[in-house]
Simulated scan of single mutants.
Amino acid sequence: MITAADPWQGHDTTVLFTVLLVATPSLVALLAYLCSRFTGRARPRRTPARVWRDVSLAAVAAGLAVYLWGLLDLLFLGDQEQAQECERHKPDGAVLVGRRGDFVPLRLVCEVADGRDYSVVVPGYVNPTLTVVLVLALLGAAVSAFLHHRQRTPAQKKG
Results as ranks from 00 to 15, higher is better:
residue 40 G to W: 14
residue 121 V to P: 01
residue 57 L to R: 12
residue 121 V to G: 01
residue 104 V to M: 13
residue 89 H to L: 13
residue 39 T to E: 06
residue 89 H to T: 05
residue 47 T to C: 06
residue 75 L to H: 13
residue 52 W to D: 01
residue 100 R to A: 10
residue 84 Q to S: 11
residue 125 Y to G: 01
residue 158 K to H: 07
residue 43 R to T: 12
residue 88 R to M: 11
residue 44 P to W: 06
residue 25 P to L: 10
residue 108 L to W: 02
residue 51 V to S: 05
residue 94 A to Y: 11
residue 26 S to W: 08
residue 30 L to V: 06
residue 2 I to L: 14
residue 80 Q to R: 13
residue 142 A to H: 09
residue 116 R to Q: 13
residue 101 G to L: 07
residue 26 S to I: 06
residue 81 E to Q: 15
residue 24 T to W: 09
residue 36 S to E: 12
residue 9 Q to S: 12
residue 103 F to Y: 15
residue 79 D to L: 05
residue 79 D to P: 07
residue 81 E to P: 04
residue 143 V to H: 04
residue 129 T to Q: 02
residue 84 Q to T: 14
residue 127 N to S: 11
residue 125 Y to E: 05
residue 144 S to N: 13
residue 61 A to V: 13
residue 73 D to Y: 15
residue 69 W to K: 06
residue 62 A to Q: 03
residue 50 R to T: 12
residue 147 L to I: 10
residue 44 P to D: 06
residue 72 L to T: 10
residue 12 D to Q: 10
residue 97 V to S: 05
residue 79 D to S: 13
residue 56 S to N: 02
residue 82 Q to G: 01
residue 14 T to C: 00
residue 99 R to S: 02
residue 86 C to S: 05
residue 35 C to N: 12
residue 67 Y to S: 02
residue 67 Y to C: 04
residue 110 C to D: 00
residue 137 A to W: 08
residue 51 V to R: 13
residue 132 V to C: 00
residue 30 L to G: 02
residue 111 E to C: 04
residue 98 G to Q: 02
residue 88 R to T: 14
residue 85 E to P: 00
residue 153 T to C: 02
residue 131 T to F: 14
residue 135 V to W: 15
residue 45 R to H: 14
residue 135 V to G: 07
residue 128 P to H: 07
residue 14 T to E: 08
residue 145 A to Q: 11
residue 40 G to E: 13
residue 137 A to E: 06
residue 155 A to I: 12
residue 120 V to A: 06
residue 52 W to H: 04
residue 97 V to P: 01
residue 133 V to L: 01
residue 133 V to M: 01
residue 2 I to W: 09
residue 118 Y to K: 04
residue 16 L to S: 10
residue 117 D to P: 05
residue 150 R to P: 06
residue 49 A to G: 09
residue 148 H to L: 15
residue 143 V to Q: 04
residue 153 T to I: 03
residue 87 E to V: 12
residue 141 A to H: 04
residue 110 C to M: 04
residue 5 A to K: 12
residue 49 A to P: 08
residue 124 G to C: 00
residue 80 Q to M: 12
residue 58 A to K: 02
residue 77 L to Y: 11
